[in-house]
Amino acid sequence: METLLSSIRIAVVTMAICVGGYSGAVWAVGQAVTPDTAAASLITTPDGTVIGSRLVAQAFTQPQYFWPRPSAVAYNAAGAGGSNKSPTSPDLTARAAETVKAYGATPENPLPAELAAASGAGLDPDITLRAARYQVARIAKARNIAVADVEKLIDKHAFAPGGFLTPDRLVNVLELNLALDGASVR
């Protein structure tokens, strides 16, 4: 009986250290080193209302907004993941065809591949400059503003996630759409 009680005490202490202690240490380091990222990179209004996260895509389908990459999980962060379907899957082919049609792509004006294919997690919040610029004409027309104004906004929000080592510059779709609306966020 004494061996059983010792074993239980060791198991409880081990769990407390490995689960509670380790998790707490990782959380504390995250809060100290990158507090914004550790707190989910939330985008809020000045009054504190949460609009979304810089790290998770949201569905935008109205013509006056930039559209993100397709999502295999319907932009549900609780169920992040790819579709696990083969590139030759009829379902994926049908979804891609619908996407191409929604963008109005033609052989003369082909859709950037990233706008037709979901990312690995299905929640990629960023698109490349090429994908953003592909959407400029639709957005300018829907908002009745100059194409140059939309392009300036894209350039203002573009960033290189890996610094100079990244060949493509990206834009965050949610932040770009909020900027289009003139929303004041922090």
Rank of each mutant, 00 (worst) to 15 (best):
N84A: 15
V171W: 01
A137E: 13
A96H: 04
A28H: 04
L129C: 01
A117H: 15
E98A: 14
P112E: 04
L123V: 03
G82E: 02
M15G: 09
A102T: 10
T93V: 12
Q31T: 03
T88M: 13
T93Q: 14
S23D: 08
E114R: 03
L153D: 05
P161I: 11
K101I: 06
S41I: 04
D126Q: 01
P110K: 09
V136Y: 03
T106M: 08
T3D: 07
A94R: 13
L129T: 09
K101Y: 11
G52P: 10
G81L: 05
A132V: 01
A183Y: 07
A72K: 00
K152M: 09
L129K: 05
D149M: 05
V12F: 12
E175Y: 01
A28L: 15
F66K: 07
T61K: 12
V150E: 00
A118C: 07
A105W: 11
Q62R: 14
T45L: 14
S184V: 08
I127Q: 01
V147I: 09
I145K: 11
V150D: 00
Q64N: 13
E108V: 00
L178C: 06
V13W: 14
T93S: 14
S89M: 11
A132C: 02
V100Q: 08
V33R: 08
P110I: 09
D155V: 09
T99P: 00
G52K: 03
G82C: 04
E114D: 11
A121M: 14
T99S: 11
S53D: 13
N172V: 05
S41E: 04
I43G: 02
E2H: 11
T106D: 10
A96D: 02
Y65M: 01
L55Q: 15
N177Y: 10
S41H: 03
Q62N: 11
P46A: 13
K101F: 13
P46E: 13
A131N: 02
A96W: 02
I154F: 05
A160R: 12
G48F: 01
